[in-house]
Simulated scan of single mutants.
Amino acid sequence: MNADHFADSLTVLRKLAQGIDPRHDAPLAVDDPCQTPEVIRALFHAIRALETPAPKPRTPPQQAGKPWQPEEEQALLQRFVAGESITAIAREHGRSTGGIRSRLKYLGKL
């Protein structure tokens, strides 16, 4: 959806939530379904959701998804046996905490 259509859609939702017919800029009829509390509440939720910026996608760690080298596995095991946290090991290896746990399971350590 381009920016103009998005802005137009928000304008329509705002008018409906305020009890205004967006086609004629006149008040909605009292018995209009858009005048019910649950619909008004839903319209405000939709407006808030559309106005909230989408979260930025995370950049995966440098080594995420890459094959494990034998020397890297040895370093992983040494750190794990030494009691280093999974988070610290992940940071050091450029991998996710899930990737570290998965490798430790594969190696029979978890």
Rank of each mutant, 00 (worst) to 15 (best):
A46H: 10
D4A: 12
G98T: 14
R58M: 00
I100F: 08
A29N: 00
Q69C: 09
V81T: 10
T97K: 07
F6D: 01
P27L: 02
I47M: 02
H93R: 03
N2R: 02
V81L: 06
P27Y: 01
A26W: 01
E51H: 00
Q78S: 14
F80A: 12
Q18M: 09
G19L: 04
L107T: 12
E84H: 12
P53E: 09
A46P: 10
D32A: 12
E72Y: 07
K56H: 13
E72W: 12
A17I: 02
A7D: 11
P67M: 13
T97Y: 04
Q63I: 05
L10W: 00
Y106C: 15
P70N: 02
Q69P: 02
A49M: 14
D4C: 09
R23T: 10
R58V: 07
P57G: 03
T11I: 00
P55Q: 05
P61N: 06
Q62D: 15
K56E: 11
H5W: 15
Y106D: 06
A46C: 13
H45T: 13
R41E: 10
I47G: 06
T36W: 00
Q63L: 05
E73A: 08
F44S: 02
F6K: 06
L43F: 04
A64V: 05
G98A: 13
A29R: 09
L107H: 03
K56T: 14
V30I: 15
G94L: 05
A46Y: 03
R101N: 09
K109M: 13
G108M: 04
P27W: 02
Q18F: 14
S9V: 01
P67C: 12
L10F: 01
S96L: 02
Q18W: 14
A82Y: 01
P22V: 00
G94Q: 06
D21R: 11
R41H: 12
G19C: 05
R48P: 03
V39L: 11
L107E: 10
T36F: 04
S85R: 09
I89G: 07
A82M: 08
R48T: 15
T59Y: 03
R95H: 09
F80I: 02
R41S: 13
D25G: 07
L16F: 00
Q69E: 13
A82T: 00
D32Y: 03
D25W: 01
T52P: 11
R41F: 13
L43T: 06
Q74V: 14
P53I: 01
L10I: 00
K56P: 09
N2H: 03
L13N: 05
